[in-house]
Write a protein that binds this DNA or RNA. Structure first.
Length: 496
RNA sequence: CGGGGCGUGGCGCAGCUUGGUAGCGCACCUGCUUUGGGAGCAGGGGGUCGCCGGUUCAAAUCCGGCCGCCCCGACCA
């Protein structure tokens, strides 16, 4: 069967970067727009984001937070209030300078994030210890004037969630930052089927204005790392800068302690790069816009009628079937009559639909349906099977849950296989050049050594992992750069 | 921000070196045959060649300027 000349994805193994762009385009997740650095998220891509978003939104609410909405435009004087914050973000801020024809007296920043706005707003809303804790979140777009575009991973405008909280004590704020990183970790692992190494960022890598930045780092299919989301303990930095105070039980005025945490549509890029294969997208069932696609097969109008009649009750039964607790199976019957079944098989595989059902005259006669699973090509599984119509819904639900599990197992295996303990400078340089992946080593804590590693290898200090994150690896006891006793275990990697 | 590339029907591209009726694949429309792994044949519709200026009898093609986007590197979710 001859393939069309265009619209074929590049080989993943040959050119990972181009493969990524091809998958985004061919699976109809997103396209470029007339605006530099800004993408159009198409319905299939947005549905994917919505499933991730809804799962996270539920957990954010379950952990006691409420959603709000803050202004898009931030007066320059506000943005400048916290010194380190403005220093960190100023190179990336887009400015509104005119209203109509008139130049504004004060420029307005298009929010790169909302800490400054939160500070200004909650300065007035927080008066008493009874007003604490403040636990709010917003789903919003932000703009950071990026000089390089990669759909989902790096765009000038992107969608995310930013949580903001204030607490009466430093310990409570730290707990909150840790709690929300834990919530993120659940989503990454249980929904996106992506394992992460969680921990702290170094001073050089942390959020401008934060005391501590917590992060989750994942490994993409090309062995480069991706920061999946961050959670910041802001201490009382923003409260002091914005003069936020509360009157405590003892009648003393005190600054509250803040956190902020963000999770963006970049995670969609991670799903593509972690699970995708030579045939295109592979989606974890929990977030797949379509769980099951049904492809009818027929030649004559009589056959078509018989096949349609056989599909109707199957479709209804599948839609009624529970999966993953409270979800229902999401079914699409592909009734297009301008393309052949073969075309549809390839089309839905490219788009990562976990399960395909084929129903033709032979199946109708036998009371069966052909089931094919969309698993990574290397699994060697996914051959077609004939299944009786009777227990199809339960069978499909079980398969979806098994696929979800298998994808996670597979990505954990990949991460383990590409996490290397390196104990000295030569080994660090060699392993990074030869294999890439996560490089676990000792670090003396000095910024100079951190800089040297980056300058020489291109790998950055991704994370200082929490206790137990690398349980099977005994960390080196000396700094890989200078040989001094290590005060930290560090994970270096070339990153996106 | 440095380096490179590209702007030609909806999409992907060729044509430009050497100026002379704008072409190919996909998509689209009509008909017939097809349909269990990216269908075939026949006919058909659609483009002031990114913009401005210059050279020329004549510019997609040569010259100058501008704009835009993409890719590769330094910074960032």
């Amino acid at each position: 069967m001859p393939a069309p000349a265009s619209n074929r994805s590049r080989a993943r193994s040959a050119d990972f970067g181009q493969w990524y762009l091809d998958v985004v385009r061919d699976a109809e997740l997103a396209s470029y727009s007339p605006v530099r650095g800004c993408i159009v998220v198409r319905p299939y891509g947005f549905a994917l984001w919505e499933h991730v978003r809804d799962a996270l939104d539920r957990r954010i609410k379950e952990t006691g937070h409420e959603n709000i909405y803050l202004p898009l435009l931030v007066p320059e004087s506000l943005l400048e209030t916290e010194a380190k914050h403005v220093e960190g973000f100023s190179p990336q801020v887009a400015w509104v300078t005119h209203g109509g024809a008139d130049e504004l007296a004060e420029r307005l920043a298009i929010r790169p994030t909302s800490e400054a706005m939160v500070g200004a707003v909650y300065r007035d809303l927080i008066q008493s210890y009874r007003d604490l804790p403040v636990l709010v979140n917003q789903w919003a777009n932000v703009v950071r004037w990026e000089l390089r575009t990669r759909p989902f991973l790096r765009t000038a405008e992107f969608l995310w969630q930013e949580g903001h909280t204030f607490h009466a004590s430093a310990a409570e704020a730290r707990e909150e930052a840790e709690r929300m990183l834990g919530v993120y970790r659940e989503i990454w692992q249980d929904w996106l089927a992506i394992p992460t190494i969680t921990g702290r960022k170094s001073e050089a890598e942390k959020f401008p204005g934060a005391d501590v930045t917590l992060t989750g780092e994942a490994l993409m299919g090309d062995r480069r790392a991706l920061q999946m989301g961050t959670s910041h303990d802001l201490g009382s930095n923003f409260a002091r800068a914005f003069d936020i105070r509360f009157l405590d039980r003892d009648n003393e005025r005190r600054h509250p302690f803040g956190t902020s945490w963000g999770f963006s549509w970049r995670t969609i890029g991670a799903v593509i790069m972690v699970h995708g294969d030579e045939r295109g997208l592979v989606l974890p069932p929990r977030i797949a816009p379509i769980h099951v696609v049904v492809v009818p097969i027929w030649r004559t109008v009589e056959e078509r009628a018989a096949v349609e009649a056989a599909i109707a009750p199957v479709e209804a039964a599948l839609r009624a079937q529970a999966v993953f607790g409270d979800q229902r199976i999401r079914v699409r019957v592909d009734r297009r009559d301008d393309v052949t079944p073969g075309y549809k098989f390839n089309d839905w595989e490219l788009r990562g639909v976990p399960i395909r059902l084929e129903v033709g005259p032979r199946d109708v006669a036998a009371g069966t349906i052909v089931v094919a699973e969309r698993l990574p090509a290397t699994d060697g599984t996914g051959a077609k099977e004939s299944v009786s119509v009777d227990h199809l819904p339960a069978d499909v639900a079980a398969r979806l849950e098994r696929i979800q599990t298998r994808l996670l197992e597979r990505s954990i295996t990949f991460q383990r296989a590409n996490t290397h303990r390196v104990s000295g400078w030569d080994e660090l340089v060699d392993v990074n050049a030869a294999q890439g992946g996560f490089l676990v080593t000792g670090w003396c804590g000095s910024a100079a050594c951190e800089r040297d590693v980056q300058a020489t290898t291109g790998a950055t200090l991704r994370v200082l992992p929490f206790e137990g994150e690398l349980e099977e690896l005994e960390p080196p006891t000396a700094c890989a750069r200078c040989g001094a006793p290590a005060s930290e275990t560090a994970v270096f990697a070339r990153a996106y």
